[in-house]
Protein backbone atom coordinates (compact mmCIF):
# COMPACT_ATOMS: atom_id res chain seq x y z
CA UNK A 1 0.00 0.00 0.00
CA UNK A 2 1.22 3.46 -0.80
CA UNK A 3 1.92 5.77 2.06
CA UNK A 4 0.74 9.34 2.10
CA UNK A 5 3.09 10.89 4.54
CA UNK A 6 2.17 13.96 6.50
CA UNK A 7 4.69 16.72 6.89
CA UNK A 8 3.71 17.14 10.55
CA UNK A 9 6.48 16.56 13.02
CA UNK A 10 9.16 15.64 10.54
CA UNK A 11 12.30 17.57 9.88
CA UNK A 12 11.79 19.97 6.98
CA UNK A 13 13.87 19.32 3.89
CA UNK A 14 16.70 21.70 3.15
CA UNK A 15 17.69 22.66 -0.38
CA UNK A 16 20.59 20.90 -2.05
CA UNK A 17 22.72 24.05 -1.88
CA UNK A 18 21.98 24.52 1.81
CA UNK A 19 22.71 20.88 2.47
CA UNK A 20 26.05 20.99 0.69
CA UNK A 21 27.02 24.07 2.73
CA UNK A 22 26.05 22.78 6.17
CA UNK A 23 25.37 19.12 5.98
CA UNK A 24 23.93 18.39 9.41
CA UNK A 25 20.49 18.07 7.92
CA UNK A 26 19.05 14.59 7.45
CA UNK A 27 16.40 15.57 4.93
CA UNK A 28 17.09 17.22 1.61
CA UNK A 29 15.00 18.29 -1.33
CA UNK A 30 16.27 17.81 -4.85
CA UNK A 31 14.81 19.96 -7.58
CA UNK A 32 14.29 18.30 -10.94
CA UNK A 33 17.28 20.05 -12.51
CA UNK A 34 19.69 19.21 -9.69
CA UNK A 35 22.26 16.44 -9.88
CA UNK A 36 21.34 13.52 -7.61
CA UNK A 37 24.96 12.38 -7.69
CA UNK A 38 25.95 15.43 -5.60
CA UNK A 39 24.33 13.61 -2.65
CA UNK A 40 26.17 10.33 -3.08
CA UNK A 41 28.94 11.09 -0.54
CA UNK A 42 26.29 11.81 2.13
CA UNK A 43 23.73 9.06 1.66
CA UNK A 44 24.58 7.31 4.94
CA UNK A 45 23.43 10.21 7.05
CA UNK A 46 20.31 11.09 5.06
CA UNK A 47 16.93 9.86 6.25
CA UNK A 48 14.83 11.48 3.56
CA UNK A 49 15.39 12.70 0.04
CA UNK A 50 12.47 14.49 -1.53
CA UNK A 51 12.59 14.70 -5.31
CA UNK A 52 10.52 17.42 -6.96
CA UNK A 53 8.18 16.69 -9.86
CA UNK A 54 7.11 20.23 -10.78
CA UNK A 55 5.11 18.90 -13.76
CA UNK A 56 4.14 15.31 -14.39
CA UNK A 57 5.82 15.58 -17.80
CA UNK A 58 9.16 16.38 -16.20
CA UNK A 59 10.69 12.91 -15.93
CA UNK A 60 14.15 13.81 -14.64
CA UNK A 61 13.20 12.71 -11.14
CA UNK A 62 12.84 9.10 -12.30
CA UNK A 63 16.56 9.06 -13.11
CA UNK A 64 17.35 10.81 -9.82
CA UNK A 65 15.47 8.14 -7.90
CA UNK A 66 17.23 5.27 -9.59
CA UNK A 67 20.65 6.88 -9.26
CA UNK A 68 20.15 7.34 -5.51
CA UNK A 69 19.00 3.75 -5.00
CA UNK A 70 21.74 2.40 -7.25
CA UNK A 71 24.24 4.29 -5.04
CA UNK A 72 22.86 2.47 -2.01
CA UNK A 73 20.48 5.00 -0.47
CA UNK A 74 18.19 3.14 1.92
CA UNK A 75 16.27 6.02 3.49
CA UNK A 76 12.93 7.40 2.45
CA UNK A 77 12.71 8.52 -1.16
CA UNK A 78 9.75 10.78 -1.70
CA UNK A 79 8.21 12.00 -4.94
CA UNK A 80 6.67 15.42 -4.37
CA UNK A 81 4.63 17.58 -6.70
CA UNK A 82 2.53 16.84 -9.77
CA UNK A 83 2.39 13.13 -9.06
CA UNK A 84 -0.54 11.31 -10.66
CA UNK A 85 -2.08 7.87 -10.13
CA UNK A 86 -0.71 6.50 -13.36
CA UNK A 87 2.86 7.48 -12.53
CA UNK A 88 3.14 5.86 -9.17
CA UNK A 89 3.95 2.45 -10.63
CA UNK A 90 6.90 3.86 -12.54
CA UNK A 91 8.00 5.88 -9.51
CA UNK A 92 7.98 2.79 -7.29
CA UNK A 93 10.04 0.95 -9.86
CA UNK A 94 12.55 3.81 -9.77
CA UNK A 95 12.91 3.41 -6.02
CA UNK A 96 10.41 5.89 -4.59
CA UNK A 97 8.61 4.70 -1.49
CA UNK A 98 6.58 7.71 -0.51
CA UNK A 99 4.46 10.15 -2.42
CA UNK A 100 3.45 13.69 -1.61
CA UNK A 101 1.12 14.51 -4.44
CA UNK A 102 -0.36 17.93 -4.93
CA UNK A 103 -3.40 16.09 -6.26
CA UNK A 104 -5.92 14.34 -4.08
CA UNK A 105 -5.11 10.75 -4.97
CA UNK A 106 -7.67 8.06 -4.34
CA UNK A 107 -5.75 5.28 -2.53
CA UNK A 108 -7.92 2.62 -4.16
CA UNK A 109 -7.03 3.92 -7.63
CA UNK A 110 -3.37 3.99 -6.69
CA UNK A 111 -3.49 0.42 -5.44
CA UNK A 112 -5.37 -0.75 -8.54
CA UNK A 113 -2.93 0.98 -10.86
CA UNK A 114 0.01 -0.61 -9.12
CA UNK A 115 -1.30 -4.12 -8.67
CA UNK A 116 -2.26 -4.41 -12.34
CA UNK A 117 1.33 -5.20 -13.30
CA UNK A 118 2.40 -8.55 -11.88
CA UNK A 119 5.76 -8.64 -13.68
CA UNK A 120 8.13 -6.29 -15.46
CA UNK A 121 10.26 -6.55 -18.54
CA UNK A 122 13.31 -4.75 -17.24
CA UNK A 123 15.32 -4.50 -14.08
CA UNK A 124 15.04 -1.20 -12.22
CA UNK A 125 15.48 0.00 -8.65
CA UNK A 126 12.64 -1.86 -6.96
CA UNK A 127 14.24 -5.27 -6.78
CA UNK A 128 11.62 -6.79 -9.09
CA UNK A 129 12.86 -9.82 -11.00
CA UNK A 130 12.75 -8.99 -14.72
CA UNK A 131 10.76 -11.23 -17.03
CA UNK A 132 13.89 -12.45 -18.82
CA UNK A 133 15.17 -13.77 -15.52
CA UNK A 134 11.86 -15.49 -14.77
CA UNK A 135 12.11 -17.16 -18.17
CA UNK A 136 15.57 -18.50 -17.56
CA UNK A 137 15.50 -19.14 -13.83
Amino acid sequence: MVEHLQADGEEPCVTLDAFLEQSNATAVRLESDEDARALIPFLDRLKLIEVAFPKFRDGRGYSSGRILREAGFTGELRAQGDVLVDQIGYLKRCGFDSFASEKDLNPADVEAAWSRWPEHYQGAADGAVPIWKLRHG
Partner: peptide
Amino acid sequence: RQWSSFHPEFSYLP
Protein backbone atom coordinates in the same frame (compact mmCIF):
# COMPACT_ATOMS: atom_id res chain seq x y z
CA ARG B 1 11.07 -3.79 -27.60
CA GLN B 2 10.74 -5.72 -24.39
CA TRP B 3 13.34 -3.62 -22.55
CA SER B 4 11.69 -0.37 -23.63
CA SER B 5 8.09 -1.42 -22.93
CA PHE B 6 6.82 0.36 -19.81
CA HIS B 7 10.36 1.43 -19.01
CA PRO B 8 9.93 3.13 -15.64
CA GLU B 9 12.73 5.66 -16.05
CA PHE B 10 12.13 6.58 -19.69
CA SER B 11 8.38 7.09 -20.00
CA TYR B 12 8.50 10.88 -19.43
CA LEU B 13 11.46 11.79 -21.59
CA PRO B 14 11.97 15.36 -22.82
